[in-house]
Amino acid sequence: MSELIALKAQQLASDSILMKSYEEFYNEKGFFFTKNPNLAGAKRKPPKFPINSKGFSQKWTEPEWFVNSQKFYLMYLAGMDKNKYVKDSDYESLKKAYDKWDQRYYVVFYGDSAKWTCNLFVGEALYMAGKNSLTSSSKYYSAKQIWNEEGIFKQIKKSEVQRGDIVSFYSGLHVEIVSQVMEEGLIFKDKVSFCSRGAGRGSSDFGTEKCNDTQNSRLINKKDIKFLRVF
């Protein structure tokens, strides 16, 4: 299972649409994409769009046509403020936005002040690997919940770390997925450092693989790092 999780993390990282949505979410646009239809708040692309502008402003307010998260995303794509009062004359701009929406992706709107994406990356990769990575409230586990070994996450010994394990940094402030483990020693292959993939490291670093650096941020024996496995 761990190797499958590592492969899905790499696949997720190469999905430019999802990574762009994480970047937008981190930069306080309020939304992100998922392929998990069971994630709380996930809304698909509306199955239909009005055929012309006649009465469009009225249809825009009717939930059988659009719900709020769908409207917010379409307005974002159209370059409109989400608080704008939509008129019939906005039909063409919003129809073009609708046509841009790839129906494989569900939009989730958690609000403009939300920004954390590291747990979204981990949860999405686990979903892609076939694991039920949702809490009882149908959200992805937070970084702190993962550190606390809630749900499907179990701590492992640092001598057992392998690709596809979850690494939790800074006592539960950040999580990523291990992509490589570096070993040293001729007789005893001690696990020394690691590389990992994730999101939420800053406003422009999403999905890249990072290895141990000059600050020794990815040494396996650091005290504020914990490793967990999904069984």
Rank of each mutant, 00 (worst) to 15 (best):
W101D: 00
D102Y: 01
D102A: 06
D102T: 11
Q103M: 14
Q103L: 10
R104N: 09
R104E: 14
Y105M: 07
Y105P: 00
Y105I: 12
Y105L: 13
Y106P: 05
Y106Q: 05
Y106F: 14
Y106C: 13
Y106E: 03
V107L: 03
V107S: 04
V107G: 01
V108T: 14
V108N: 09
F109C: 13
F109V: 12
Y110P: 01
Y110D: 10
Y110F: 03
G111N: 12
G111R: 15
G111Y: 15
G111A: 07
D112C: 11
D112Q: 11
D112K: 06
D112I: 15
S113W: 04
S113K: 15
S113P: 03
S113E: 07
A114K: 04
A114N: 07
K115A: 07
K115Q: 10
K115R: 09
K115F: 12
K115L: 01
K115T: 04
K115G: 03
W116D: 12
W116Q: 11
W116T: 15
W116F: 08
W116P: 01
T117K: 08
T117G: 02
T117W: 10
T117S: 14
C118D: 02
N119V: 10
N119E: 14
N119Q: 15
N119F: 10
N119I: 05
N119S: 13
L120N: 05
L120R: 01
L120G: 02
L120Y: 01
L120E: 00
L120T: 11
F121E: 05
F121D: 01
F121K: 05
F121V: 07
V122C: 03
V122S: 08
V122F: 07
V122N: 04
V122T: 10
G123T: 12
G123A: 14
G123K: 08
G123Y: 05
E124S: 03
E124D: 05
E124P: 00
A125F: 09
A125M: 12
A125D: 06
A125I: 02
L126W: 09
L126A: 02
L126C: 04
L126R: 09
Y127F: 14
Y127P: 06
M128Y: 11
A129M: 02
A129W: 11
A129V: 13
A129L: 04
G130H: 11
G130W: 14
G130I: 14
G130Q: 13
K131C: 02
K131I: 08
K131R: 12
N132Q: 15
N132I: 10
N132S: 15
N132R: 03
N132C: 09
N132Y: 13
S133C: 15
S133M: 09
S133D: 06
L134Y: 09
L134C: 08
T135S: 00
T135Y: 12
T135P: 08
S136T: 13
S137I: 08
S137F: 01
S137H: 00
S137V: 09
S138E: 11
S138K: 15
K139M: 04
K139E: 08
K139I: 00
K139D: 06
K139P: 00
Y140N: 07
Y140R: 11
Y140T: 11
Y140L: 12
Y140A: 06
Y141N: 03
Y141D: 06
Y141V: 05
Y141S: 06
